[in-house]
Design a protein around this nucleic acid. Structure first.
Length: 302
DNA sequence: AAACTTGCCAACCGCTGGTTT
DNA sequence: GAAACCAGCGGTTGGCAAGTT
């Protein structure tokens, strides 16, 4: 696409970083702040490309990085977030203070993927159906034609689960999960600007304005996992148009949704009186031990 | 003790999207 | 508008340590 390689390989070091290289990079960041990675090599004499420097800083040298094993709570959060977001490691990491996307990705691949695969194989033998949950009627059981998206241990795929008839939509609302991700990002930036500071759940590196730690998202899921559902409601309030569009479009089966669709109980979303309050119940729903993206929330693609 | 296997994790690679020139 | 630059993301790889045969 008209661009050469970003990291010229000539004369650059590769592989594990030496302590002296770390020191050069740390000194540079101390003096100049994060960013301008392409200048690091020029100004420090470090024989590493900017990309490599950035990675070293983000994954290892940053002072707020939490070392040590992943706790049970963190693991549970990773599993839940992965169900919601798929392999969007940076988004997941943004909700685990001190953890890097690389660390979470590695942890998933080496630990959780296997666990999830085992859990899935045991549960799949019990049930090969997808349940569409409705507010006013008993759950509708639909023959599963494919593995639902976000099945444990796998990234979301373009699999499809067909409803038996269009009436099954009547009590449900479709939310494009990509829109949900946008909403999460949107509220992140909104809350950051409201607070005029980086995410309260992440620590800053020191003194300056350029102490932004990457995207510094709010710790929405961590907060959400406490009893405070306010942030979750905020998300859906602040970018409700996205969700509504996906919802409105869903009656038209010709609409091309780019991502997987979550089907939620319609009443939970449509009733203006409960717009905020009922997302608390949605929060409770998501909080529950139910397999909310696998079965109780039907996941499908248009 | 040596050879082999397995698992972990830091780092690399290719790609994308946003911004600048 | 095109090209170049840059930051960032997710998939993959390679080296190392621990465990097993």
């Amino acid at each position: 696409m008209g661009r050469g390689p970003r990291c010229s390989k000539d004369g650059l070091n590769k592989g594990a970083w030496m302590a002296t290289e770390d020191k050069l990079l740390l000194d540079y960041i101390k003096n100049h702040g994060e960013g301008k990675w392409s200048n690091v090599a020029k100004e420090t004499g470090l024989k590493r490309c900017g990309k490599s420097c950035r990675l070293r800083w983000m994954n290892y040298l940053r002072p707020d990085i939490k070392r040590g094993s992943i706790s049970d709570d963190e693991e549970e959060l990773i599993v839940r977030l992965h169900k919601l977001l798929g392999n969007r490691w940076s988004l997941i990491a943004g909700r685990l203070p001190g953890r890097t996307d690389n660390e979470i990705k590695n942890y998933w691949n080496s630990n959780l993927a296997k666990k999830m695969a085992q859990a899935q194989s045991s549960s799949q033998s019990k049930c090969n159906n997808v349940i569409v949950k409705t507010t006013n009627s008993p759950s509708t059981v639909i023959p599963q034609q494919h593995t639902p998206i976000a099945s444990p241990g796998t990234a979301p795929t373009a699999n499809e689960v067909h409803l038996q008839n269009a009436d099954d939509f009547s009590n449900n609302v479709a939310i494009n999960s990509d829109d949900l991700v946008k909403a999460v990002n949107s509220v992140d930036s909104q809350m950051s600007s409201e607070q005029g500071s980086p995410c309260p759940s992440t620590t800053t590196t020191g003194d300056g304005d350029d102490d932004h730690l990457g995207s510094s998202p709010t710790n929405f899921m961590m907060d959400f996992n406490t009893d405070d559902h306010e942030d979750f409601c905020k998300i859906l309030d602040c970018d409700f148009a996205n969700l509504s569009n996906a919802m409105d479009d869903h009656g038209d089966h010709g609409v091309d949704h780019s991502g997987p669709i979550l089907v939620l109980p319609k009443q939970m979303i449509m009733d203006k009186n409960v717009q905020a309050a009922d997302f608390g119940s949605l929060a409770s729903f998501l909080e529950s031990d139910e397999d909310w993206l696998g079965n109780d929330l039907n996941v499908m693609l248009s």
